[in-house]
Structures are given as structure tokens and as C-alpha cells.
Design a protein around this nucleic acid. Structure first.
Length: 205
DNA sequence: AATCGAAACAACCGCCACCCT
DNA sequence: CAGGGTGGCGGTTGTTTCGAT
């Protein structure tokens, strides 16, 4: 076990530390990470606390191996978004950016590189590179949902075929977009992708 | 049973964007 | 407008687990 120059503990988390952190989040909620070590009585830095919660303790996290559907979705999203792990994770329920990144690097990247060596050259694909937005809010800490990445204007326009879109309009359109809530438009369904104009979904894999 | 290498997972680091003063 | 503080991201490294020999 080691500590950093500020004397903060590093390395693997103990069960006791997990319990303290969990209780702290239950009481105060997510956010204000700089206060969490103090509130929880943990000798950890804010980043370590946040990471532990986001990647391991959060109740929304799905553990275990990726299903075939998830792998399929990951492949498509990576094709579209590149190494934007947080964006990709935001569209695979229950998976974190770290999960997705680790899975990609240990399972899929090796396959991709080996297939590149054996297969004929493929045409260059255009990767949409959105910049993550933190939606402006006076109390972002109290409403973590609002901190979820959304597609930025440029990306949204590409997908929707719209020429001009403000952030507010983007936010509004997402709220009204039934593709994000209608069961018909499951992330795993062809309808979902076709609704964004990706007619030949399989070609993106 | 012991050893070693590969795979999988967890955690850290550095950077950047945003917000507030 | 500038600067400091904070949150979040992607890349990388460290550690643990697993399987083969």
C-alpha cells in the first residue's frame, strides 16, 4: 500500500472504505467530490473517490461479461464515435466508460488489429467526434442526470440532417425525441439506427 | 504443486473545459 | 478578462486472476 505526496492513500480500496464512500453518497448524493473525502472520513483524493463510485459502487453498474448485443452495439458506436468512451458508455446501459475502454482494449482492439492484417484494405471511415457538453445548470451537483454527455451541435446536425441547431434546441429536441424513450427504438433495434439515417446498419460494423 | 505468461480488471495521471469569483 | 478550483475524460500503468506447462 502506498500514498501520494499529499499523504493520501492509493491503491486498491478496502471493504470498509467502500462502505464509507457508499454511505456518504447515500446521504449527500453524487457531486462535490472535493468534499467527499472529508465527509466520508476517507484519506483518499477526490478523483479516487469519484472513480471508485462511478466505476464500481454505483448501483446502476452492470457487472459481468458483455453480451453479444452489447458487443455488437459497442462495435457500432466505436465506429461512429471513435475512442469517446464516455459517450459510448452513455449509450450502453449499465456499462461505465472504464468498462467499455477495458473491454475494447483487451477483447476487441486485438481482434481489430489482427483482422486488419489479414483482410483487404477498407475505405477510410468518417468518425463523428463530438465534444462533450456539460449542460449549464445552477445546481449540477444535485442533478447528475444533467451532466450526462449529449451529442454536440455538429454531431446532432450530422445525424438529424439539420443545418442550424443551438444547444438549447438540441437539449429540447432530445427531450422530445421519442427515439430515446420509445421501446420500438431500442438501442439494439434496427429501427433505432435507421431513425438516425443509418439505413445499412450492418455496414457500420 | 510451482512457475510463468497472458488476459482482465482496477486505479492513477495528466490534461482540458467549465464555472465562479 | 484572468485566474483558481473542480469535474470529467482518455491514455496508461499496476495488480490480480487464470490457464498452460
Amino acid at each position: 500500500m502506498s500514498s501520494n505526496p499529499e499523504g493520501k492513500k492509493r491503491g486498491a480500496w478496502s471493504k470498509e472504505e467502500d462502505i464509507l464512500l457508499k454511505k456518504c453518497i447515500e446521504i449527500y448524493g453524487e457531486g462535490r467530490w472535493y468534499l467527499v473525502p472529508l465527509r466520508a472520513g476517507l484519506n483518499r483524493c477526490r478523483k479516487s473517490c469519484r472513480l471508485r463510485w462511478v466505476n464500481y459502487l454505483s448501483p446502476n453498474i452492470k457487472r459481468g461479461t458483455f453480451s453479444a448485443d452489447e458487443v455488437d452495439l459497442l462495435a457500432r458506436l466505436h465506429k461512429l464515435l471513435g475512442n469517446r468512451w464516455s459517450l459510448i458508455a452513455g449509450r450502453i446501459p449499465g456499462r461505465t466508460a472504464n468498462d467499455v475502454k477495458n473491454f475494447w482494449n483487451s477483447h476487441m482492439a486485438p481482434k481489430m488489429s489482427s483482422s486488419l492484417k489479414t483482410s483487404k484494405p477498407v475505405e477510410k471511415t468518417v468518425i463523428i467526434k463530438p465534444k462533450p457538453h456539460k449542460l449549464s445548470n445552477n445546481e449540477p451537483q444535485q442533478n447528475p442526470q444533467r451532466c450526462i454527455n449529449v451529442l454536440d451541435t455538429e454531431e446532432t446536425n450530422k445525424i438529424n440532417g439539420v443545418t442550424s441547431f443551438s444547444i438549447q434546441e438540441t437539449e429540447k429536441s432530445l427531450a422530445q425525441d421519442n427515439r430515446l424513450t420509445d421501446p420500438k427504438y431500442s438501442l439494439f433495434s434496427m429501427d433505432f439506427w435507421k431513425s438516425f439515417g443509418f439505413d445499412d446498419v450492418n455496414s457500420y460494423v
